[in-house]
Amino acid sequence: MLCIRGVVLPEREERVFWIDGEVLRAGDPPGGLAGRDAETIVDGGWLLPGLVDVHTHPGALEPGVPFDEELLRRQLGEHRDAGVLAVRTPGTAQRMPAWVEKDPELPRVTSAGRWLATPGRFFPGAGRDVSEADLVQAAVEEAAASSGWCKVIGDWAADEPAVPLALLTSVVEAVHAAGGKVAVHCQTAEGTRNAVLAGADSLEHGMHLDPALLDRMAAQGTAFVPTLSAFGANVDEMRAREPGVRRDLWLAGWDTMLGNVRAAHEAGVTVLAGTDSFPCGTVAGELTWLQRAGLSAEAALGAASWTARSWLGLPGLVDGAPADLVAYDTDPTLDPAALDHPSRIVLRGRVVR
């Protein structure tokens, strides 16, 4: 019988748990911590219900490359070994294989089926190419075939039109009516505005977000996944390019992103951590960017842990929850470097390390 004792975040309370199969039980185990069958695998330190990356695309190194199931397994393993015990994949080249959900050694995956791209709005053939006339039905199909999510490419080139608001609204209404949720890729002012006004469940990237829309986002529950680390890695390259419409619009959008993330958080919008980059298992780097944007260390950590889990419908460290947890020797809100060095990882009741 495996036992754990430590300070639970964000509550900052010392608690004791024991593992009952794949389930976490609160309190002393039968017979107590010193019982004959009890083995304490964590004795002190700081406990999280695992990290979460809500925007990651394992299975291919870039859009347009054939989906590789062995690469998918390796990249999910990279997440797990970094303490990322839950991920959301908002769009992939093919639907998530059934074996992913059944593999006890891999993180819990919330998938959104294949990227849905209307003509001219994505890498050709990288996802599911559909006409605007077929987009609503395709969105319902992908949500039904995945974890209840679908992902729409809401815009693409910075100087070209986004998916029309009326069409995107119809998509959201149809998917919601079927019990699903809609993530929208948006990097232009029009695309981001349309995603918010359509009632999307999440804005992926949200470049050029109009701060006047933040109260509406908060009221309707639209989350903001800015993927700052993916953009930040490209800033120097973009600045070095010759001036042009697309380069200049990209930089103008980036220059407002950190302020928009801070304003969104202050307005009550759920801001979440996603990487949209490789290697996998690097969501801790996104927390650094969220703190640069103005989130507190605890809010940034929540964006990649308990807040993200709650948003995905996953419980934290409570009695009866899945036995998923990560332990650290020091408080990761005070020592962010600790996130790169978990002292213990437990997934589905099994000790990973």
Rank of each mutant, 00 (worst) to 15 (best):
L2P: 04
R5M: 00
G6H: 06
V8S: 00
L9M: 02
P10M: 13
R12L: 10
E14L: 04
R15K: 15
V23D: 04
L24P: 13
A34P: 00
R36P: 09
D37F: 12
T40R: 12
G45T: 11
L51S: 00
H55G: 05
G59K: 09
G59T: 11
P66T: 09
P66D: 10
P66N: 07
L72K: 08
E78H: 13
V84K: 09
L85D: 00
V87D: 05
P97K: 08
A98M: 02
A98S: 14
V100Y: 00
D103N: 14
P107Q: 13
A112M: 07
W115Q: 06
G120N: 12
F122G: 15
F123V: 15
G125T: 11
D134P: 08
A139N: 07
G154L: 08
A158I: 06
A158L: 15
A166R: 07
L167R: 15
V171L: 10
A174L: 06
V175P: 09
H176E: 15
G179A: 09
G180T: 09
A183H: 01
Q187I: 15
G191S: 09
L197P: 12
D201Q: 01
M207A: 11
H208A: 05
P211C: 00
P211H: 05
P211N: 13
A218C: 14
G221W: 10
A223K: 11
P226H: 07
T227A: 02
S229N: 08
G232H: 02
N234Q: 15
D236F: 03
R239M: 06
A240M: 03
R262I: 06
H265F: 00
D276R: 00
S277F: 04
F278M: 12
C280F: 11
T282R: 14
Q291C: 12
L301V: 07
G302P: 08
W306C: 05
T307D: 14
A321G: 04
A321L: 05
A321Y: 07
T330N: 08
T330S: 15
D331W: 09
D331C: 13
P336A: 07
L339S: 03
L339K: 00
P342R: 06
R350C: 10
R353D: 12
